[in-house]
Amino acid sequence: MHVVVFTRSTPDTAAKVEVGADGKVTWGDAATVVNPWDEYALEEGILQAKNGGGKATAISIGGEMHNESLKHSLAMGLDEAVRIEDAALDANDSLAYATAAAAAVKKLGDVNLVICGKESVDVGTDQHIYQMARKLGWTLLAYVSKILEVDYAAGTIKVERLLEQGKQIVTSKLPAVITVMKDINEPRYPSFIGIRKASKAVIPVWSLADLGVTPPAAHTKLVAFKNLPVRDTQVEMIEGTPEEQATQLVDKLLQEKVL
């Protein structure tokens, strides 16, 4: 069996992100890290490959900055890593991303399970993942908080999904694309030996020609990034005994009409 985990590099979660005069996003000299949601996907990839007696491959779509997340994946213990980059591929368009991602999974040939983090914190989207599942024609199980059973020989999977109103337990068939939530596992830290091995790894890059696909014309376009509207941050401190603070706060909240 073969598990694929999609990952990408994102600015450090504590970084101050701003929009420059050119409309582009900058995060100063803050480091890039593996997308925080992907850590759970990578850990689950390692666990599933081990349980199924198979291997795990990490894939990133985009420029060289994403080597960072792929090296992290190898250092954690995934077996292989591939990056997909092509000047004709606009990975910001979810259909283009999904088309390339599905082609890469097909090119690997023997994949039973694709695991993704719930979303990418940079672009803040998840639709490219669901669209990859549709382009593959595979089962999609999103928001998975637990894999309860998986039988690669029989091609069945049973998971717990975390939805707004509670937990849903479902069974379905493999191959499948799943997205995982934070609850699913405790991601490991890369080992010293893992980091050393990963630092020497040469990561192959596949082009659209290698994948043999042409993405459909993009219907969406990123127009510009904008800084947030300036928040009226003048905080009004409410002092006194706890009872006085409570009374004054209720007065203020009634004035603000939020109660």
Binding site: E18, D122, H219, T220, L222, V223, F225, K226, N227
Partner: peptide, 24 residues
């Protein structure tokens, strides 16, 4: 249609356009 959405974990906003060629 030009839509505004949040990006980079809510630290900035982005304007994204979607053309009128098909269903939006």
């Amino acid at each position: 249609v030009v839509a505004t959405r949040s990006a980079y974990a809510g630290k900035v906003m982005s304007d994204v356009s979607i053309d009128a060629a098909g269903t939006q």
